[in-house]
Design a protein around this nucleic acid. Structure first.
Lengths: 193, 193
DNA sequence: GATTCTACTTGCCATTTGACAAGAAATTAA
DNA sequence: TTAATTTCTTGTCAAATGGCAAGTAGAATC
């Protein structure tokens, strides 16, 4: 695993001295996960925060008919966090599962709290991470209101083409809020034109 | 305006000593807004955070065809914040407008930063506010994927019935991601049964 | 009180999306 | 390699939602 990726990722979120970024990176423990491994299961409390160095993860839950719904797709490098469960130490309602083998850096809740307490820059990093994720979710929400399914597909395709090379379409369809059938038709329609 | 509402609201987000909650409340300046007044306009940078004591506010933007889209509805008491604009001091893409006369407590960006720096509990309050708002948005997102328009309507109706007494249906429809025509039909259908 | 404006409803028809089922293609397991 | 499983596509039909326009009701303005 590559610690430099972690350091660069921190610096991209918030400009901080390289030395400090390296110190923060040292707080994380590297782990390797296999495909289908779970980082967190529903009804459990998130005890750690994760940074995905390589691989793909999704979170999912179930709709009223018991059908799996993909709530999020994580493409490296990024934080993987159930904010509600982690920061309020409450059980989550979602499952976080590796879609591919993953390289993941983890940091315990206690250590995060400790660094929040002692390092203003770490607090700032945490806040920026929250704000950034909020605004990504906000954009996705706007897309659900403003855009057609086809446009949502095209936006995701242009922003994260790598996802389509690595994740089954039916999971992407669910994430886009449509059925795999519809996504298949949308792709067909676009291919024709 | 009623400072106690502010204090109680803070305490509901995070258990803190009453004295400290009162001190935080003192950092906020009371203001009265008229119907249709703007708290923040698109392309401007949010210079203050707001707590809505009484009244209704919405945020809106425009879709690709120039049609207004309501992105959020704020029902007192609650924080009213453009997180991205406020915390990153970047221009917002949305308009925040009063739908009724409003009683609003404001606190400047500088003062917020100062309190973040000096008061751990204030930081914690800010983080909880962010986390809470993230999870509300997350739930709304899930609803857009999992629920039919009718179910989204019913959920909003049961959770915030007061909104339907105070805000035009066409704005609520837009917030739910449907047209006012569709909402009208959904309501009719429900009324029949 | 009359006028204007806005919100809401409704009818008609088109489009999008879903449900279900069958089959093809690709991947995984034996 | 073969078999089993999963993913993806496609057909048919139904349901949900939208676009547009007309008409009604209610609120705001003069």
């Amino acid at each position: 695993m590559n610690r430099d990726i972690l350091i660069r990722y921190f610096s991209s979120i918030l400009p901080i001295p390289a030395e400090r970024a390296a110190f923060f990176a040292d707080q994380f423990v590297p782990m390797e996960f296999l495909k289908n491994d779970f980082l967190l299961k529903e009804n459990k409390i998130s005890k750690a925060t994760f940074v995905l160095e390589a691989g793909y993860i999704r979170s999912y839950t179930f709709d009223n008919n018991g059908v799996e719904v993909t709530t999020n797709i994580f493409s490296a490098p990024c934080f993987v966090n159930d904010f509600l469960s982690f920061f309020k130490q409450k059980p989550t309602s979602e499952n976080y599962q590796c879609l591919t083998p993953c390289k993941i850096w983890t940091m315990s809740y206690e250590n995060v709290q400790n660094c929040f307490h002692n390092y203003p820059e770490f607090r700032e990093l945490g806040r920026m991470m929250l704000v950034t994720n909020y605004s990504i979710l906000h954009e996705r929400m706007l897309g659900m209101i403003k855009d057609s399914a086809e446009n949502r597909y095209l936006k995701l395709l242009s922003k994260h083409p790598e996802i389509f090379q690595n994740i089954p379409l039916k999971i992407i369809a669910s994430y886009l809020g449509i059925t795999d059938t519809s996504l298949s038709r949308i792709r067909k329609e676009i291919a024709v034109n």
